[in-house]
Design a protein around this nucleic acid. Structure first.
Length: 286
DNA sequence: GACCAGGTGAATA
DNA sequence: TATTCACATGGT
């Protein structure tokens, strides 16, 4: 995608970038509407998105970080076009959500965000993360306001179980404590980037509170991998409603559904998953 | 009051 | 190995 960096701004024009769709696509939780746009916080960086039609201005703490974050060097036009060739709900979903980007998020933040996401809803996930970051994250000054960074692993590890209960984590509080401790004491998130899928998923699943689906989300949103297809309640609905009949096998479990979708969508699995998730879910509520 | 939300871990058969 | 169950919390 063509974009220009001027000082602390990224300027671009594209039909494949929608600030609203990105924020409400369910992959990111720390954002809020702000003066006709959106403020988005990732790790220790902050950006302010303004958009009028196809024209986007991203004012931010670090343009290089956000070029990567918004995956600006990937050609979403050809991805959408490839997915449209599948026809059916896939084509509809790709057209409907063509402004979505797969965000390349901070790995630590992605791990804890999706541990919290288990059997939870997006509104609550947002609130819980706000509580945690507001209490433990360092302040970031940006555009004359103060925002909270995602906390360091050590800060999370030192917080204690009671803190996470009060933040609203519920029964996931012990997951947060143990996983924070493991990461603070040396579990290497960066090493996972070089592993093949099964090794990477197995490694992430060593973390308490991380199963197959959460591992897939971490690999997709934290590592930018396409060889995954997270199957949650919405994607399971997509399979049962829109794919099962034509696939001959109806009663697949979630792992089998994930494998099946990766066979179908191959190198575009992660993108396909996100368009289908957004399309299936958005009609119910934001 | 039951059911649901970007499921997981543990017990059971 | 596959199935079943409990789990905090807030919304519908």
């Amino acid at each position: 995608m063509d974009y220009v960096i001027k000082d602390n701004r990224i300027i671009l024009e594209s039909e494949y970038f929608s600030a609203q769709q990105i924020c409400y696509s369910g992959q990111v939780f720390r954002f809020r509407p702000h003066k006709n746009g959106y403020v988005l916080i990732s790790g220790r960086e902050v950006c302010y998105l303004q958009q009028q039609g196809r024209e986007v201005t991203i004012t931010c703490t670090d343009p290089k970080y956000f070029v990567n974050y918004f995956d600006l060097d990937t050609d979403y036009g050809s991805i959408v076009s490839e997915l449209k060739n599948f026809g059916g709900i896939t084509a509809d979903a790709a057209e409907f959500g063509k402004g979505i980007r797969i965000l390349r998020q901070d790995k630590l933040e992605t791990v804890f965000s999706f541990i919290i996401s288990a059997n939870n809803n997006i509104k609550r996930i947002q609130g819980i993360l706000e509580n945690i970051c507001g209490s433990l994250g360092k302040p970031i000054s940006f555009m004359d306001e103060s925002f909270s960074a995602f906390p360091e692993a050590a800060a999370l590890a030192g917080a204690g179980e009671e803190f996470f209960y009060k933040a609203g984590c519920g029964y996931r509080a012990p997951y947060m404590v143990r996983t924070a401790g493991d990461i603070a004491s040396g579990f290497d998130l960066n090493a996972i980037a070089g592993m093949d899928y099964s090794a990477a998923a197995a490694e992430l699943s060593k973390l308490y509170g991380v199963g197959k689906k959460v591992a897939d989300c971490i690999l997709l949103f934290g590592y930018g991998r396409q060889d995954v297809f997270p199957v949650d309640t919405w994607i399971e609905k997509v399979y049962r409603d829109d794919f099962a009949a034509s696939q001959n096998c109806k009663n697949l479990n979630r792992k089998q559904i994930a494998d099946r979708f990766v066979e179908i969508f191959k190198h575009n699995s992660g993108y396909a998953q996100q368009y289908l998730f957004y399309y299936k879910r958005i009609y119910d509520k934001i």
